[in-house]
C-alpha cells in the first residue's frame, strides 16, 4: 500500500504588499452568507423561544401569548414531575456517557495502537457504517430484539438462562442500552483520532526510562489523549441529554426523558410557552453540566500533570 504523505504545513507567507490589498476583500465576505443563515434560522428562532418562555397560554386554542411577561412558566416547568424526569434524564445521560467511555477507550486503543495499519481503515469504516445508518432504524432493531416475545427472549428461554419472557423493553434499562449503543461511535471516533496521533516514541521513551506498562498508560497515554476524551464526553453527553428518539422507541412511560416532555408541549399539549421554558431550562442544564465537568477535568488534568512532573523530575519547576 502506498500512501502519499500530505505536504507539511507551509511556512506562512509574508503579507502581500499594500498594492494587492484588494485581493483580500472578495473572499473575506465568503463567511457572510453562512453567518446570516445561522442568524436567521438558528439564533433568531432560539431567541423567539426564549421570548415565548416569558409568556403564557391564554386559552386552549392558542399556543402562546406575550402581552403579560413573567417567570411563571419557569416556575411551572420546574414542577416535581419535571424534576423526576429531569433526574432520570441526567442519570441516564451521565451513566450512558461513562459507559460509552469505558467501552470505547479499549476499542479505540485496539484500533489505533494494536491493529495493523492496513486493517485500521477497514475497522474504522466498520465503526462509521452504524453511525451513518439511520438512528431511528437502528433503535427499532433493538426494539425488535428486546421485545418479550422476540427472538432474543426465546433463545434465552430455551437455553434456560431466563425463565420468564424478557422484561427489558419499555423500561429505563432499555433506554440506557439504546443510548449507549447509539452514541458509542461518537465516543470511539475522537478517541481514535487522539490515540492515532500519539507518538509511539513517547511510549518507548517511557518504557526505556523504566516505566511499567501501567504507569506508561496512566502517565503518558491518558494525559496525551485527554483532548480526545473531552471531545468524546461532550459529543456524547450533549445530544444524549436532548435525545428524543431513543426513549420514544424503547422507553415507554417508565423510561421517558426531558426531550419528550418538551416535544409534548409543542406537539400534543400545544403549550408553547411552557415548552419554551422547559427547552431553555434544558439548555441551561446541558451547558451547565458540560461546563462543570469540563472544569473538573481541567482541574484533574492539572493535578495529574503536577503530580507527574513532581515524581518524574523533582527539580523541574511546575
Amino acid at each position: 500500500m502506498t500512501t502519499i504523505e500530505a505536504p507539511a504545513a507551509e511556512v506562512p507567507i509574508a503579507p502581500p504588499p499594500a498594492s494587492r490589498r484588494w485581493l483580500r476583500v472578495p473572499r473575506g465576505i465568503g463567511a457572510l452568507p453562512i453567518g446570516l443563515w445561522i442568524l436567521l434560522f438558528f439564533i433568531l428562532p432560539f431567541g423567539l423561544v426564549v421570548w415565548y418562555s416569558f409568556g403564557y397560554k391564554p386559552d386552549i386554542y392558542t399556543t402562546h401569548d406575550n402581552d403579560v411577561l413573567s417567570f411563571d412558566r419557569y416556575v411551572e416547568a420546574a414542577s416535581p414531575a419535571f424534576f423526576a424526569i429531569f433526574g432520570r434524564t441526567l442519570n441516564i445521560s451521565v451513566i450512558g456517557t461513562i459507559l460509552c467511555l469505558v467501552i470505547a477507550f479499549p476499542m479505540a486503543y485496539w484500533m489505533a495502537v494494536k491493529l495493523a495499519a492496513r486493517w485500521r481503515g477497514v475497522v474504522l469504516a466498520l465503526v462509521l457504517i452504524p453511525y451513518w445508518t439511520n438512528f431511528l432504524v437502528r433503535t427499532i432493531g433493538w426494539q425488535i430484539s428486546l421485545s418479550p416475545d422476540g427472538f432474543v427472549s426465546n433463545v434465552l428461554q430455551s437455553a434456560h438462562i431466563i425463565d420468564t419472557p424478557l422484561k427489558v423493553l419499555y423500561t429505563s434499562g432499555a433506554v440506557q442500552l439504546g443510548v449507549v449503543y447509539n452514541y458509542l461511535p461518537l465516543m470511539i471516533l475522537p478517541l481514535y483520532v487522539a490515540l492515532e496521533r500519539l507518538d509511539p516514541r513517547l511510549l518507548e521513551a517511557s518504557r526505556d526510562l523504566g516505566g511499567t506498562a501501567w504507569s506508561t498508560f496512566w502517565r503518558v497515554t491518558v494525559p496525551l489523549t485527554s483532548p480526545g476524551v473531552t471531545a468524546g464526553l461532550l459529543l456524547v453527553f450533549v445530544p444524549l441529554m436532548g435525545d428524543y428518539i431513543t426513549p420514544t422507541v424503547l422507553g415507554g412511560a417508565k423510561g421517558s426523558m426531558v426531550g419528550q416532555m418538551v416535544a409534548g408541549q409543542f406537539q400534543s399539549a400545544q403549550n408553547w410557552a411552557l415548552g419554551a421554558a422547559m427547552a431553555v431550562l434544558l439548555m441551561f442544564a446541558i451547558f451547565g453540566t458540560s461546563a462543570v465537568v469540563g472544569g473538573l477535568l481541567k482541574l484533574v488534568g492539572r493535578i495529574t500533570t503536577a503530580a507527574t512532573s513532581l515524581t518524574l523530575s523533582p527539580k523541574e519547576p511546575l
Binding site: I34, G35, I38, F41, F42, I43, P45, F46, L48, V49, Y52, T63, H64, L234, L235, V238, P239, M241, G242, D243, Y244, G259, V262, A263, F266, W272, G275, A276, A279, L282, M283, I286
Partner: peptide, 19 residues
C-alpha cells in the same frame, strides 16, 4: 456559532424552528 449549531440538541433546534 458553528460549534453551537453542531452541539445544540436536535430537539431544541426543532422546537425553535417550528414557531
Amino acid at each position: 456559532l458553528l460549534g453551537l449549531v453542531m452541539v445544540t440538541p436536535e430537539i431544541v433546534s426543532a422546537i425553535s424552528l417550528l414557531p
